[in-house]
């Protein structure tokens, strides 16, 4: 994910001036997404709304001191931690699928984005790694990534629940990546 230069300008501008209008321009586009994220954890409208504002408050201080380069992923981590910490404090922590995304780094995405340049041994490696996944994950990953079916179609084809499909794909993707990194270094 490239960082939009506009965003970079706002980040630097805010760090230097502390002008909330600049920070507002940076944060506002993300508010609907942050709200959705908060709702996922709180399952409560008012709390999520407040959290969106509280996250803005912590941006006010944090972005003055932290030099952030990728605002979107940084914001994601901040927002998520805010919700999790808050839930932990109020002792209502529920089971949340914690690290689906945190382990994701660019290897896989990279391949996706600069698709032409994938060496053949990588493809072979991927094929053999796919074999190591359990059936559900393998099926879902194949359908999704190789046949480019959307979740609903995958669900229709496999008969799995839509949410299951999603987690199979996410977990399958993660396992695939772990497998490929391990084998690459061997």
């Amino acid at each position: 994910m490239g960082v939009p230069p506009e965003e970079q300008k706002l980040l630097v501008g805010y760090r230097e001036t502390g002008d909330l209008r600049v920070l507002g321009r940076l944060y506002e586009p993300y508010m609907p997404l942050v709200y959705g994220l908060c709702y996922k954890y709180y399952k409560d409208e008012a709390k999520s709304e407040d959290a969106v504002m509280q996250i803005f408050e912590s941006l006010i201080t944090k972005l003055r001191t932290h030099e952030v380069t990728n605002f979107k992923s940084w914001l994601y981590t901040l927002a998520r931690n805010h919700c999790l910490m808050d839930l932990r404090r109020s002792n209502r922590i529920q089971t949340v699928d914690i690290d689906e995304h945190l382990m994701e780094s660019d290897v896989f995405m990279h391949q996706h984005h600069s698709g032409e340049g994938i060496p053949e041994e990588q493809l072979v490696l991927m094929e053999s790694c796919l074999e190591t996944l359990n059936t559900e994950q393998q099926t879902c990953v194949r359908l999704f990534y190789l046949e480019q079916k959307c979740y609903k179609e995958v669900a229709d084809i496999t008969g799995y629940d839509l949410n299951k499909v999603k987690s199979h794909i996410q977990n399958g993707k993660r396992n695939l990546k772990i497998c490929m990194e391990k084998n690459k270094h061997e």
Binding site: M1, Y30, P32, L33, V34, Y35, G36, L37, C38, Y39, K40, Y41, S48, K72, S73, L75, Y76, A79, R80, E100, H101, L102, E104
Partner: peptide
């Protein structure tokens, strides 16, 4: 894009 994913979930 985990942020987008979580937002969709929410």
């Amino acid at each position: 894009d985990p942020l987008l994913q979580d937002a969709i979930d929410g």
